[in-house]
Computed example of a mutant assay.
Amino acid sequence: MSSLLASLPREISHTLGSEPGFRGQQIFSWIHQKGSRDFDEMTDLPKGLRQKLEAEHTILPAGIDTAEEAADGTTKIRLKLNDGALIEAVLLRDTADRLTACLSTQVGCAMGCRFCKTATMGFIRNLDAAEIIGQLYLLETAAERSIDNIVFMGMGEPFNNYDQVSKTVQVLTHPEGRNMGQRRFTVSTSGIIDGIRSLGTDHPQVRLAASLVSADPATREALMPVEHKNPLPRLKEALMAYQQAGGRRITLEYVLLKGVNDRKEDPMLVRKFAHGLRCNINLIPWNPADGMAPVKLPQGKVLPLEEPDAKRVNWFREELENLGLTVVLRHRKGRGVNAACGQLATKGSAKNNSL
Rank of each mutant, 00 (worst) to 15 (best):
E131A: 03
K272S: 13
T326M: 15
P304W: 12
D163E: 13
E227K: 07
V226W: 07
K52N: 08
K296H: 09
R10K: 11
E227R: 07
R50C: 10
R278P: 09
D40S: 15
P61G: 10
A62M: 12
C102W: 04
E221N: 13
V302M: 12
V313W: 11
T186H: 07
K351Q: 08
E131H: 02
V260L: 01
A215L: 06
D72I: 02
R184S: 14
D83A: 08
Q170M: 04
I250A: 09
T75Q: 15
G348I: 08
T74R: 02
G247M: 05
F273S: 01
A289L: 03
L81Y: 04
A215D: 06
T346L: 05
N160M: 13
N230L: 12
H174F: 13
F115S: 12
M111I: 15
A210E: 04
L60H: 10
G291W: 04
I147G: 00
A222M: 11
T201W: 05
K52A: 10
H203I: 14
I284F: 14
E54Q: 07
R50V: 10
R278F: 13
F273L: 05
F39E: 11
N160C: 15
V187G: 10
Q33T: 13
A209M: 11
I150V: 14
D290Q: 09
R114S: 15
P158E: 01
P20K: 05
Q26W: 00
T251C: 10
P285K: 00
F28G: 01
R207V: 02
G48A: 14
G177Y: 08
R249V: 11
N160P: 00
L303R: 14
P9R: 06
L320D: 06
S146G: 12
V260S: 01
I124S: 07
A110H: 12
F185I: 04
M240W: 06
G334V: 01
D262E: 05
L223T: 03
Q299G: 09
G122E: 11
E176R: 13
A345Y: 02
L277E: 13
G154C: 00
F159V: 02
K311R: 15
L212V: 01
A339G: 00
P288V: 05
G259E: 01
V187N: 06
R249D: 07
Q244T: 13
S7F: 15
A345K: 14
R184T: 09
F185K: 01
P308N: 09
V255H: 05
V337S: 03
P288I: 04
G342R: 04
H32L: 04
E88C: 08
R220F: 05
R312K: 14
T75F: 01
K311H: 15
A245P: 04
L283P: 07
N282M: 09
P285N: 06
Q25R: 08
L239C: 15
A215F: 03
M155H: 02
L323V: 03
G334Y: 00
V295S: 07
V295I: 14
E56L: 12
G300D: 12
V151Y: 01
A210F: 12
A89I: 07
S188T: 14
D290W: 09
S13I: 02
I27G: 02
T105N: 06
L269R: 15
F159S: 00
A71K: 12
H57C: 11
P46T: 01
F28W: 00
T58L: 12
F39Q: 12
K258E: 13
K80E: 14
S36N: 03
F185N: 03
L99W: 02
M153W: 00
Q106E: 12
